[in-house]
Amino acid sequence: MNRILLAAALLAALTAFIHLFAGGADVVAPLLASSLPPMPKLTLYAAWHMASATLILSSAALFIGSLPQHAIRSAYLVLFVSLLWIVFGAVFLIVGLTQPDSGGWLHLPQWTLLLPVGALGLWGGCPACRQRPAA
């Protein structure tokens, strides 16, 4: 078993859990209670559910990639998922740093979970890293 990818998968699953429960209370409930018109409100609500599905399915993909029998066949999937997590983390970091009323890089701390999953996925899924030196 690829322990680095397993760690990425477990951290991704933890992130999905936090998203579902803390995000539901801190983001979705206020969103649905807001006075936004139905179209943007429901679009944002649907996007939250899309993010939920992405987090859950990508943690499963990283777990499958950690299994020896799937390591080769899932290498590009692991690379894709890892890059997604890095880009998602970068989005939160950049928004936090560039929006004047955002409160800075710690006000949107999602990047602190997203970037490590992506980095672990890249490290653990790197084909060159999996090859053993010739005897």
Rank of each mutant, 00 (worst) to 15 (best):
Q69N: 01
L20T: 12
V117E: 05
A135Q: 12
A7Q: 11
L79Y: 05
L120N: 04
L77G: 04
V28F: 10
A53N: 04
R132P: 00
A12R: 10
A135R: 06
P109G: 11
H49T: 14
L44F: 13
V28K: 05
F21I: 15
A22H: 14
L93D: 09
G96W: 03
S74K: 06
A33F: 10
A134T: 11
R132S: 15
M1D: 05
P37E: 15
I64C: 00
V28C: 02
A75L: 04
T43D: 03
L62K: 04
P116D: 09
Q131L: 14
W105S: 08
A25C: 09
L77W: 01
K41V: 08
A51F: 12
L62N: 06
S34C: 08
L57Q: 12
N2H: 00
L31F: 03
F80W: 15
H19G: 12
Q99A: 08
G125A: 12
P133E: 15
P40F: 02
S102I: 09
C126F: 08
G96P: 00
Q131S: 13
G121L: 14
H70P: 12
P100R: 03
V27G: 00
T98Q: 09
D101I: 05
L115P: 05
A119Y: 10
L62P: 03
M50I: 14
S52Y: 12
G65S: 00
N2R: 01
S82L: 08
A60C: 07
A22V: 15
L108W: 02
L36Y: 13
V95C: 06
A46W: 06
G89S: 05
A135C: 11
C129Y: 05
G121M: 12
P116H: 09
T15E: 08
S102K: 06
P30L: 06
L79D: 08
L44N: 12
A25D: 10
K41Y: 00
S102L: 04
I94Y: 02
A29D: 09
K41C: 11
S66Y: 07
S58M: 02
A12E: 06
G96M: 01
S58Q: 09
L108F: 02
A29N: 07
L122W: 03
L97I: 03
L108K: 07
A71C: 00
G23R: 12
G121S: 12
L42E: 15
L122K: 02
G103H: 04
L44I: 13
C129G: 11
A135P: 14
S52E: 12
L62Q: 00
P109F: 01
Q69T: 13
Y45E: 14
V91F: 04
R132D: 14
P68R: 13
R132Y: 14
A51E: 14
P127A: 03
A7S: 05
L83P: 07
G118E: 11
A16C: 13
L115M: 15
T112F: 12
R3M: 13
H70Y: 15
G96R: 00
A90I: 01
T98V: 09
C129W: 12
A60L: 09
L67T: 09
A7W: 01
F88K: 07
S34K: 09
V28G: 10
V117D: 05
A22K: 09
F17V: 13
G104D: 02
W85A: 02
S102H: 01
G23E: 14
I94Q: 07
A71S: 03
A71R: 08
G124N: 11
I4E: 08
A46T: 11
M39Q: 04
G89N: 07
F21C: 03
